[in-house]
C-alpha cells in the first residue's frame, strides 16, 4: 500500500484514496497481462504473415517437383518431401509399436516396485534430453556401430527414440482412461490378461493413442538438429530408393536455404516453411478431430 494505513480508525477518506490506488494497480496489471498475451499473438501473426508474403510467390508446381539447385528459380523440395515421408513412415513403424507396448507393460503388467519406478523416472528424463543429444546417440550407435550409414533408416531410428517418450506418455494416459469395470468384466468371464488387453483395453484406448502418435509425428516432422548431427544431407538431388540411401528432410532443406546469403533462397525457405506448417496444421487438425470423437463416443 502506498500510504501507511496500518492502524485502524483512519478516516474514510484515507481508505477511499487507498482503494483507488489499489484498483489502479489491478488495472495496470491487467494491461500488462494483456500485453504479454498480445506479444505471443502478434509474434505468431507477424511470423505467419511474413512467411506468406515472402514465400507464397514461390509456391508453384515446379517448386514441388524439382530437386534442390544452385539456381533459386530451379530449386524445389521434391527430395525433402519424399525424404520426410520415408523417414516418418519408418519412424512411426518403429516408435508406435514400441511406445504402445511399453505403455501396456507399465499400465497393465508392471508391479509396483523399484524397477517400474526406475523405468518411469527414466522415461521422464528422456523426454527432457535435448534433441541434438539424440543426434549424437544416433551418430555413434546407428550410423557408426550398426553401420547404417547416414541413411533414412539411421535417421528414423534416431527420431523414433526421440519421440518414444511422447508416445509412451500419451498411450499410458489413454490406457488409464479405460474404465476398470471393462477389465473386471473381461476377467470375470475367464479371459486372461492379454485377452483382456487385446480385446478391451486396446480398442478402447485406440483413439487416444492415435492422437498421441499423431502429435508425436508432428514433433518429429519439425525436428532438424538430430538429423543434421547424424549427417542427413543438405543438398540432395535424388530420391532415396532404399532404407540405406542418404536423404534430406523438409526442415533441413529450409535450414539450408536460410543459411544462404542470397535473399532469393530466403524466399525459397519461406515457401518451404509454408509447406511444413501446412503439413503440421493438417496433422494437428486430425489429432483434434480424433480427440473430439473420443470425447463423444462413450
Amino acid at each position: 500500500m502506498a500510504e501507511d494505513t496500518g492502524t485502524l480508525g483512519r478516516s474514510a477518506a484515507v481508505f477511499k484514496a487507498s482503494m483507488q490506488w489499489r484498483r489502479l494497480k489491478s488495472h495496470f496489471f491487467v494491461v500488462l497481462g494483456l500485453l504479454s498475451v498480445l506479444l505471443g499473438v502478434v509474434a505468431l501473426l507477424v511470423l505467419l504473415v511474413d512467411v506468406i508474403v515472402q514465400g507464397s510467390g514461390w509456391l508453384d508446381w515446379q517448386f514441388f517437383t524439382s530437386f534442390d539447385s544452385r539456381f533459386p528459380a530451379r530449386a524445389g523440395i521434391k527430395a525433402a518431401l519424399f525424404g520426410t515421408l520415408y523417414m516418418m513412415v519408418f519412424t512411426m513403424l518403429l516408435a508406435v509399436p514400441i511406445g504402445v507396448m511399453t505403455a501396456i507393460y507399465l499400465e497393465e503388467y508392471a508391479g509396483d516396485n523399484w524397477f517400474t519406478q526406475f523405468i518411469q523416472v527414466n522415461i521422464a528424463n528422456l523426454a527432457g534430453v535435448p534433441s541434438i543429444v539424440y543426434g549424437l546417440l544416433g551418430l555413434q550407435v546407428f550410423v557408426r556401430i550398426m553401420e547404417m550409414g547416414r541413411s533414412v533408416l539411421a535417421g528414423s531410428c534416431t527420431m523414433a527414440l526421440l519421440i518414444l517418450p511422447i508416445i509412451i506418455v500419451a498411450s499410458r494416459e489413454a490406457i488409464r482412461a479405460v474404465p476398470p469395470s471393462m477389465r473386471e468384466a473381461s476377467f470375470a468371464l475367464g479371459a486372461s490378461k492379454w485377452e483382456t488387453v487385446r480385446h478391451h483395453v486396446l480398442p478402447y484406448a485406440l483413439p487416444g493413442m492415435l492422437t498421441g502418435a499423431i502429435l508425436a509425428a508432428a514433433r518429429a516432422i519439425g525436428e532438424t538438429a538430430p538429423l543434421i548431427t547424424i549427417g542427413a544431407l543438405t543438398f540432395v538431388p535424388f530420391l532415396p530408393e532404399h532404407p540405406l540411401d542418404r536423404f534430406t528432410v523438409l526442415p533441413i532443406q529450409i535450414f539450408n536455404w536460410v543459411s544462404r546469403a542470397q535473399s532469393e533462397f530466403h524466399h525459397l525457405a519461406a515457401a518451404g516453411i509454408i509447406v511444413l506448417l501446412v503439413v503440421l496444421i493438417i496433422l494437428n487438425s486430425v489429432a483434434i478431430y480424433l480427440r473430439q470423437r473420443l470425447r463423444t463416443r462413450y
Partner: peptide, 27 residues
C-alpha cells in the same frame, strides 16, 4: 502365450533404459 507376451512387453519397456545407457556410453 501369456508368459511370452509378458516378457516381450517387459523387453520393450526396458528399451528406454537401454536408450539412456546408449546416450551415456556413446557420449
Amino acid at each position: 502365450k501369456e508368459e511370452a507376451i509378458r516378457y516381450v512387453l517387459l523387453a520393450t519397456a526396458t528399451l528406454s533404459i537401454v536408450t539412456t545407457l546408449g546416450i551415456l556410453l556413446s557420449l
